[in-house]
Amino acid sequence: MPADIYLNVAVSGILTGLIYGLSTLGLSVIFGVIRIVNFAHGEIMVVGMFVTLVLFRHLGIDPLLSIPIVAAALFGFGFVLQDWVVRRVAHLADHMQFLLMAAVAVILISVCLMLFGPDAQGAQVGYAYDSLSIGPLIVDKVRLYAGLAALVVAAALFAFFRYAATGKAIRACGDNYLGAQVVGLNVRRLFALTFGIGTACLGAAGAILLLLIDVHPYLGPPLTLLAFIIVIVGGMGSLPGAMLGGVLIGASEAIAGLLLQPSLKSAFSFGLLILVLLVRPQGLLGKATQ
């Protein structure tokens, strides 16, 4: 029996981890190409969750079906944010970029607070309490769908970067900024696209996450921290690393929550992060620089 519990907890942790991984893809894409750490990461995701909530409440759209709508909306937001604002601080020191993104985060939180209030709100779907049993495994339907949806979106993103001409051009910008300019790529537009794609990932991840947890304006910072941990564990700028890190952290947090106190699980993740930074600073799947 105890073995079953661990297996169940691990599977549900992995499924949650897939969503973490998808959101971290958004961070990783932006850092990998534009070299900016998006400190407003969690807040942008919260915006995505609220958009999903509005669609669910007023139009009755299931969060899973609203993924494309939310992703498109946040794509537009990210595109404009990069092109109008973030682009202007690209030449500044790290701490100035950090402060700008932190200011963006504060503004987003306040807007959410003004529009939706401080209380936690969730989307109750019809299949919220259904579960499937596969052998000894009992999986919540909602978690299974959420994990699969995250996997599908991530696969679409990988395909885009591998096969689409625009995706290849973006990777070229990330690999060699000067070279990309020399061969005539419109780097400014591609950067805006990249930021948009990054925030679209956050929108999709937010829509999916709303199935599992309630949203409130102060959810942003913990989500940002989680993504930082995952991206460093997996390797900054490495897309498979982000997914791997997400699954690892999701599963280890779930197990740690079972073995220790649930409130200690984030200390466990931070411990893991410090360990990875020491042993392999570039992350599990990251490329060593210099």
Binding site: I107, S110, V111
Partner: peptide, 12 residues
């Protein structure tokens, strides 16, 4: 949230 909104705008 209106205070933190203006605060963020000033810093940005």
């Amino acid at each position: 949230g209106i205070k933190s909104f203006f605060w963020g705008v000033c810093v940005a």
